[in-house]
Write a protein that binds this DNA or RNA. Structure first.
Lengths: 256, 256
DNA sequence: GTAGCCGACTTGACTAGACAACTTCTGGGT
DNA sequence: ACCCAGAAGTTGTCTAGTCAAGTCGGCTAC
C-alpha cells in the first residue's frame, strides 16, 4: 500500500477496496480478510479494520462463515401520501424480501394506545409483530397495533395475507394521506438490537411511527418499525418529490 | 468477568461499564482502556472493544490523548412547524453551543439551485457555511444557500447575527410551515468526514435538506446539515406533536 | 438417492507486545 | 509572568499468533 502521510493503513486500504467494490454488483463477494492481508502484506487485523470501516459505511455486509459481500443501501420512503410496502421497497433494489410473522395476539389496549386509537376503557387491540428480512438478512422489525372492535375478522385476514395495507384498504377503508408520522434516528433499544443481531455492528436504527386513519378520520392503525440505518437511506418527504442538488463546500479542504 | 454463556467478553464488559456510567453525569471521565484491562484482567484490545461499543451507542466519547468521557445523546427535532435552533437544541441538554461561520460568499447559482430556488439564468446566491460545535466538539456542518436578489443586504445581516432564522423572520417575512424536508441517513461525503474528524468513528451522519418559503410560496432558503449520528437522536414529525406510546414486543426475548 | 459427517474457508474472539500520536500537567528556566 | 521542555497518561495503529464458531460443499456410508 502506498499510504499518504498520516493516513492509517486500514483507512487507505478500505478506500482502495471501496474503489474495487464500486465496480461490482450487489451480492458479489468481496475479498476476504485473509486474502486482503496476503495481497497487501498487512496483518489480518488491519485488513479486518478496513472491511469493518466499509461495513460501517454500508458498502459491504459481513457474516461469520459466509464471508463479506458487496451491499447497496435501500431507499425507504416515508411520507403522508406514501403507502409503504416492504416488498416493493426491497424489490426496487433487486433484493429478495421476506417477512416472518412472529406474533399475532389480541389483548387489552394499554392506556397510551387507547388515547392514540380513540378507544374506550375496555378497548381491545390486535398486535402484529413482524420481522423483515432482506436477502435473508434481518433488516427490520415492525409492530402494528389495530383496534379489534373496528376491524372484525382482522386476525384471520392477517394470517392469510402478507400485505397489511392491502387488507386495511380493501376491508376497512384505509385512506393514505391522513396519517401522523414520526421518524427517529436513534440508538437501538436493547430488545431491538437483540432481535436484529446488532451486537458489534452499527447500532443506529431508524424508528418510524405512523398512525393511519380511515377516510372519516377514525384511527385505524398504530405502527412502529425499526430499520437498520446501515442498510437504508431513509427519505422523509414533506411536500412534493424533488431531486436534491448536491451541496458543495465553499472552501475545499486540502487533502490531509 | 462472569460472562454469560455465548456472550463475548467485550460485550459483557461494555454492558457492565454502561451500568457504572449511567450513574455519572455527562462529561465525567470513564475508565481508561488500561484501567479496564487491569481491573477485569483482560487484554487491552478487549477493553478497547468494549469502549468502542459504547461509543457506537453514543454513551461515551473518546479522543486520543484526552481519554474517554461519558456522553448523552442530544435530541434534534425537525418538523414543518418547528424551526430548529442550534443554540436551543444544545442548551436543552445542558451543553455549550458554539457556531463557527466558515464562509459567507456571494456567487452565481448552480443550475440545480436555480431550479430549486426559482431563479433566472443569471441568478446569484449567498452561501453560508457553518460549523456547529457542542461543548467544543465538532458535531455538525451546515450549508445554507439563499437567493441574493430576494434578500438585499443579507450578507451583512448574517455577519452581524448568529441566528439565521431570526434574520429571515425579521427582514424577509419567513414563515415556517411551508417547508420541504428530506432526512437521510447517509455516509458522510469525504469533505464532510474530514471537517468533522470522522475517521474510524461511527461515520454515519444525517443530512437534512429543506426549502423554506415565504408566505407567498417563494423559495427563500436551501439548507443542508450533516449531524453526527452518534451524538444526536434526530426526530422528524409530520402532523401535530404527540407523546409517543412506547412500543413493546409481544414476546420478550430471553437474555442470551 | 440421501442423510450425515468432515474438511476447507470464512469471520469472531482473544492474547501479548510494541511503538506512535496526542493532550494535559508540571517544573524549570528566563 | 511567561514560555518551553519533558514526563505521564491516554487513545491510535500495527504485528504475530491461536482457537472458536458458522457456512458450504463434497464425499462417504447407508
Amino acid at each position: 500500500m502506498s499510504t499518504q502521510r498520516g493516513t492509517p493503513l486500514w483507512l487507505a486500504l478500505s478506500d482502495r477496496v471501496a474503489e474495487e467494490l464500486s465496480q461490482l454488483r450487489a451480492g458479489a463477494p468481496a475479498p476476504s480478510e485473509h486474502e486482503l492481508a496476503a495481497r497487501f502484506d498487512v496483518n489480518r487485523l488491519t485488513a479486518r479494520a478496513a472491511l469493518q470501516e466499509l461495513e460501517r459505511r454500508g458498502q459491504v455486509r459481513r457474516r461469520q462463515g459466509r464471508g463479506t459481500v458487496v451491499a447497496r443501501k435501500l431507499e425507504y420512503r416515508v411520507g403522508p401520501d406514501w403507502v409503504p410496502s416492504w416488498t416493493r421497497t426491497v424489490a426496487a433494489a433487486g433484493a429478495e424480501a421476506r417477512t416472518v410473522t412472529e406474533d399475532v395476539v389480541t389483548r387489552r389496549a394499554r392506556d397510551d394506545e387507547r388515547v392514540e386509537l380513540g378507544l374506550g376503557e375496555h378497548g381491545r387491540v390486535v398486535q402484529l409483530d413482524r420481522l423483515r428480512l432482506c436477502d435473508g438478512e434481518k433488516a427490520g422489525y415492525q409492530t402494528s397495533v389495530l383496534p379489534a372492535a373496528r376491524m372484525p375478522g382482522v386476525r384471520d385476514a392477517l394470517r392469510a395475507d402478507g400485505s397489511l395495507y392491502e387488507v386495511l384498504a380493501e376491508h376497512y377503508g384505509f385512506a393514505p394521506g391522513r396519517a401522523w408520522i414520526r421518524v427517529e434516528h436513534v440508538t437501538a433499544p436493547d430488545w431491538v438490537a437483540r432481535r436484529l443481531d446488532l451486537r458489534g455492528r452499527p447500532s443506529i436504527v431508524l424508528m418510524r411511527g405512523r398512525l393511519d386513519c380511515q377516510r372519516s378520520g377514525v384511527p385505524l392503525e398504530l405502527t412502529f418499525a425499526w430499520l437498520r440505518a446501515d442498510m437504508f437511506d431513509v427519505v422523509v418527504e414533506l411536500g412534493e418529490w424533488k431531486r436534491l442538488p448536491t451541496p458543495v463546500p465553499v472552501r475545499r479542504v486540502e487533502a490531509s
